[in-house]
């Protein structure tokens, strides 16, 4: 291991009085005193949220307004602090536009007191149904208020453009005559 000997120059007399350094410091702070302020005044001014920001996890719908989540519970499984609770349910056959989906969440709760905004749920979701979007401030007066239920999650999530069209493909196949 190379040893680098750093030579310490003895301080000059002036340096030992501290005075030039103090003057220099005062100069620096004075510059800042008159410099424009850098603070973002939060409630009135909002930060620009960059793309890929990990805000509150939300559920999204596909462009046809259909629920994308199929309650596979992979997000529940992967969530490190166990913030997600899902009650799966069956989608009845008479829901024409989702007949092939079979399964969807009956209840979907995310406890925002537990969530650590890690984004693993978004990463793991095979249906691209859960997204951490730009909502960054969550507050409430009770613990119960801090649990986002399914309705709220969809309200926060809205609709995202969807690259998945498998349900539509299924429908097309059915119409094409592949049904038995």
């Amino acid at each position: 291991m190379a040893v680098i000997t750093v030579e310490r120059k003895p301080l000059t007399f002036l340096e030992r009085t501290y005075l030039p350094q103090i003057a220099g410091g005062l100069k620096t702070t004075f510059k800042h005193l008159i410099a424009p302020k850098k603070t973002l005044e939060y409630p009135e001014q909002r930060p620009a949220i960059p793309v890929g920001y990990r805000g509150v996890p939300t559920l999204v719908k596909d462009p046809n307004g259909r629920e994308k989540c199929v309650s596979c519970q992979l997000c529940e499984f992967v969530c490190p602090p166990k913030a997600i609770r899902i009650t799966a349910g069956e989608i009845p056959a008479d829901q024409a536009d989702r007949a092939h989906v079979e399964k969807g969440p009956q209840a979907f709760d995310i406890d925002m007191l537990r969530c650590i905004y890690c984004g693993l749920c978004q990463e793991v979701c095979p249906e691209e149904a859960i997204f951490l979007q730009n909502q960054f401030s969550m507050s409430g007066y009770t613990r119960a208020e801090m649990v986002n239920h399914k309705d709220r999650l969809y309200e926060l999530g809205g609709t995202l453009p969807d690259a998945h069209h498998k349900w539509d493909k299924k429908k097309a196949a059915e119409e094409h005559g592949n049904a038995h």
Binding site: T29, H32, L33, I34, A35, P36, K37, K38, T39, E41
Partner: peptide, 10 residues
Amino acid sequence: KVAAWIQDRP
């Protein structure tokens, strides 16, 4: 206030 201004805060 002085502290804030020196630290570029309002």
